[in-house]
Design a protein around this nucleic acid. Structure first.
Lengths: 149, 149
DNA sequence: TGAAATCCGGGTAAAATAGTAGGGATTCAG
DNA sequence: CTGAATCCCTACTATTTTACCCGGATTTCA
């Protein structure tokens, strides 16, 4: 039940873009360096995010990527689902194309899966990139303050 | 973010054992047939559950398996974690041996992972095998009733 | 024009998944 | 006391997924 690196790196990259939102395009190189990720691999992930209209690209020198919407309009759920697909823990509770098993109607395991799925969705849909940025700034401020004690 | 078949089959097998709790040992063959699973594969999974003291075995002819505790004392979380390990969506938020990344302290992604982890745990720890049995009986009763309309 | 970027398709080694195979040990029924 | 049922254990394996790398084309700014 791990998130793959797609989802994790995707969140990290989107967080970087949120951090510099409004300051022009950020290059993949910058993102990859700041987050310690492979530039080539990140390229594939951000291509998916671009096709899903979550980021915009600017080609050519001094180009790069930026969020397609303000950080408070993009949720962690948008990012994860774009990169990983549904977060349903089993195929029988996929939101779009559920695989119907033979006992689908009266299956007690399915109820469990639905509850897990719903609780994950509830959490990731409630966190925006703006929330992450604010958390980050708060955490950083705190540890800077700690040095003076 | 799928549960592997280990977790899913494990829940199904434990549900079967809960359904017949108190009626003597149930053979692997019976469980596998009722749930439509591979007997040999299930054997490996139930061995893990046995070592974790969630099920007891009775060897020899007319032997089989039974729950090591009443169905209302075993949660879905006990079963899943035994078979799949922690349900942390990333290694940095493992409950027992978290992998500390470089920015661990001020990492906003980690906060997200913690919230996902906690919400999954909350759900699976709140559902007992007894709950599943009751759901099953309720669902079945309902559909039997439907036939008369 | 040349350097800095994005864009794009393909390739690939390693790990995880979901089993299969086969034999040994134990116990009950007749 | 023998045979069938059943658990117990280790090893093997095909397939899929993951997490990348490579090379080159295209676009744009300075």
């Amino acid at each position: 039940m791990k998130l793959s690196t797609k989802g994790r790196y995707g969140i990290q990259a989107m967080f970087e873009l949120a951090l510099y939102y409004g300051e022009g395009p950020i290059s993949l190189k910058t993102i990859a360096e700041n987050e310690g990720l492979s530039e080539h691999y990140l390229e594939q992930l951000i291509a998916i995010l671009r096709k899903a209209d979550l980021v915009k690209s600017v080609r050519g020198a001094q180009g790069g990527y930026m969020l397609a919407a303000p950080p408070d309009k993009i949720t962690v759920g948008d990012v994860i689902r774009t990169l990983e697909g549904s977060l349903a823990p089993a195929d029988c509770v996929l939101e779009d194309t559920p695989f119907e098993c033979s006992r689908a109607g009266g299956c007690p395991t399915k109820l469990v899966m639905e509850r897990i799925r719903d609780s994950i969705n509830k959490v990731i849909d409630s966190i925006t990139l703006q929330d992450m940025v604010e958390d980050y700034r708060r955490l950083n401020q705190k540890s800077a303050f700690m040095y003076y004690i």
